[in-house]
Design a protein around this nucleic acid. Structure first.
Lengths: 131, 131, 131, 131
DNA sequence: GTGGTCTAGACCACC
DNA sequence: GTGGTCTAGACCACG
């Protein structure tokens, strides 16, 4: 279990963790019945306070992505994959919608927006030398 | 001065205001030498805490977009337009880049992304019933 | 704002608080737009750690019962009353169903169950001398 | 020995098991002198951690419902039936009392409560399609 | 002033 | 061993 957490980008750590777990579930890397890494283990691994991990796990629980098997750990629930896929799609869709809406509201026309997008897509395919 | 503020989208109110002022400057609607509305006037107009307006203005000042003419108010500085245009482009570019990068990282291919974008652009032109 | 918390009955404190707030909303004692008592204030009043109150409030937030007005506090959301009423009804219904099911599973017949219920209802109307 | 254990209803598994054994004793299905199934046998049968069974048995022992016959197993004690019947009644009575008290405290009147109960009793006799 | 995040560490129930 | 609750206190963003 390798996660990437960036403590300095504004996004709460517990949310980064929850999100990455959801992505793994969406991709089938974590299948229903699989156990999440234990709170203490993941905390040690990421050098993060166990409570922060627990917070991420609690959120996943209350979203019914995982369920707590008392004394055993947290297991991915059966309907989780589909839910995670849906969530991811909605999240991206909303993010794109916001970016586009802001662009329009900032006075850019459709052509200018498309140009921006093309530039970025091209850059993603062949990432620049540095920044 | 009419601004659209949305208190429930996560973006700080002061930043929404500062950004919209920058956009107006970028478009030439606010020209160098023009005065911003007074803090208390704008606060009343938008039904917003004056501290919030003050914070937006302070940010604009420290970014050297506007300058304080003592006893008069805050005036758009001479080099502001160019700076605002640059900032706007960078901001949108970064936002779009993030959305696209996240989409790619989530496993969507270029075609799927373009499809999403087209859907959203169409929706922007003819906004849906409610949603 | 008076709440009754019992730290020794197994039910988590944060849940007792959240539940009592929901009941107040269901009864209209807290109307949409009303602010909850501040975390620190309620913590002081109940002699409870602020984090515990915050946990209750966070749960109410993620259930969309209340919304956070940045820098202002937590306000009851518009659809909250109905949701709280529904939740309360379901909770009680489930509790009663469980009690009845357990009674049946324990071998009691319908008449015996009804007798138990009548006894308890009578006791509720005229509470006993001591325990 | 067939038991119904539900790992997802909050009630500890060991308590569910202990309780069902008590119910059997109360009904005379397990008579004084009868042996409980061995820990490992019951654990295998229910696909449950042996520690959990052991915990249930330990509780029954310390409540003096069963006694350990060394080298033989756990046997139901002579006074057990009466005690189990009393316990069962008290347990159910308390559960029903709690449900009723909560209902009253939530503002339901006696008629509404009776209606709820009738609905649930009817449902228990002819269990619904699924739900 | 407000809520939100994170850390640190204690204690509990369950398996 | 597991997760869950609670306390205590620091720090931050927002109004």
């Amino acid at each position: 279990m390798f996660f990437h957490v960036d403590t300095s980008n504004g996004v709460p750590v517990y949310e980064q963790i929850a999100r990455q777990i959801k992505y793994r579930i969406a991709d089938g890397l974590l299948a229903p019945g699989d156990l999440l890494p234990s709170v203490r283990e993941l905390a040690r691994e990421l050098s993060i306070n166990p409570n922060t991990i627990a917070r991420a796990y609690r959120d996943l629980s209350s979203e019914e992505i995982v369920e707590s098997l008392s004394g055993v750990g947290l297991a991915v629930r059966s309907g989780a994959r589909r839910a995670c896929q849906t969530q991811r799609r909605q999240l991206l869709q909303q993010q794109i919608a916001t970016a586009l809406r802001d662009s329009v509201q900032a006075g850019l026309d459709t052509d200018a927006i498309r140009k921006l997008i093309d530039t970025e897509l091209a850059r993603l395919k062949s990432p620049p030398h540095s920044s």
